[in-house]
Design a protein around this nucleic acid. Structure first.
Lengths: 208, 208
DNA sequence: CTACATTTTGACCATTCAGTCAAGTTTTTG
DNA sequence: CAAAAACTTGACTGAATGGTCAAAATGTAG
């Protein structure tokens, strides 16, 4: 039985998970080409051939980490509730995404890097799954607008705006810290950022 | 006289420029580690040793392209006029940045990639020049708010929001096109995006 | 046109790195 | 506890790639 088989042994479960954690750290920091298998193996505390026993190709590790990331990443988006209060739903979603950016910047960075370089590994996912999901949620927002519960704005661009703004704090972390060195150290940095963003965003889409 | 000297010959002027154009294309698409000197040389239409005659190290090419980019990139930000009408100035700036994202996505992508991976080549620039400039413009915005010309929002987060939103269309171009395939092909795509963003943003900061 | 400086390149070198392999060790199973 | 399966690794290979070098080609100043 090889490491690729469906049913995992105890050791396989442990080691695959260790490898994927190490890989996320390394890939998010250096990108696919900038990362080496040796780096990941060292961070995972095992030899390179051992790591390759679990994931035969560098690409296998990368794609697996990326897929796990996408899943987590979209969960709160799926949770936007058509039956909820529009402004409240979008506030909840925005805060959720900001929290994820703060707590798991590596996931955001990994994804950003993939897209930035043309999404070579997830083109299909973007055009099928993601597009379908966004179309659905854009429809929900359009309905809210039609019901007069939100100002008339293009739902797609609104979604992009929320994504861009929230992920900025993970992806451009270095820049934010360079400009706000003391602020970012404070405990309430997250709350202040969330508050500023939500003020502008929600006032921007409040029905008039 | 070497290719590094201050005074450039005719051929040096031409070739350095050709190399930098090629390098921007390659580096923005594949990142620093993902790009090879051979690739750049081929795109520039010259042999690798010839290219290395003008820029002795791979890093030299990269840093030169990056510095040129930073300069261009901040020009419109510098142009924000404290004496102008606040909403009008911020509209002008946002549109300017969106235009740049549309016309020179490579520059935005090059910069994004650098920041995403910890800004190894421009840490100092971020902490000195950029911070100084942002502090100055944040002061201008704070004054506008104090004068009751804008809603009370944190100037720094407002600036980040404009940056994030506008650059999203360059850096996440692939994702935008995956989700809005027909839209992006239309001639008025830019206008619609600008309009959507400005509606939300400006309504969000209009004094109440 | 000549002498000198600049530009260009084929061939080459050293290093890095993804991936292989065969032999050894540990874990599981009956 | 013995045999089989699963796991681990040192040593290695081949391809890719950053960079060198010496000689040839081209451009330029007087």
């Amino acid at each position: 039985m090889t490491g690729n088989s469906n049913k995992q042994t105890r050791i396989q479960g442990i080691n695959r998970s260790i490898i994927l954690d190490a890989a996320l750290e390394v890939f998010s920091a250096y990108g696919f080409r900038g990362s080496t298998i040796d780096q990941i193996a060292e961070k995972a505390g095992m030899s390179k051939p051992n790591l390759l026993y679990y994931f035969p190709r560098k690409d296998d590790i990368y794609v697996t980490v990326l897929e796990k990331t996408l899943e987590d990443w979209l969960a709160p988006f799926k949770d936007i509730d058509p039956a909820g209060d529009p402004v409240e739903e979008l506030r909840k979603y925005t805060i959720q995404k900001l929290k994820m950016s703060a707590q798991q910047p590596e996931r955001s960075q990994l994804f950003a890097n993939e897209i930035l370089h043309g999404a070579p590994s997830i083109q299909k996912f973007l055009k099928s799954n993601l597009k379908r999901l966004v179309d659905e949620k854009a429809g929900v927002i359009a309905d809210w607008i039609a019901a007069g519960k939100l100002a008339p704005v293009d739902p797609y661009h609104l979604i992009f705006m929320i994504w861009a703004t929230t992920q900025h704090y993970a992806d451009f972390d270095v820049q934010v810290r360079a400009i706000l060195p003391e602020e970012t150290a404070k405990a309430d940095f997250f709350d202040k950022a969330a508050d500023s963003i939500l003020t502008i965003l929600l006032n921007g889409i409040m029905p008039r």
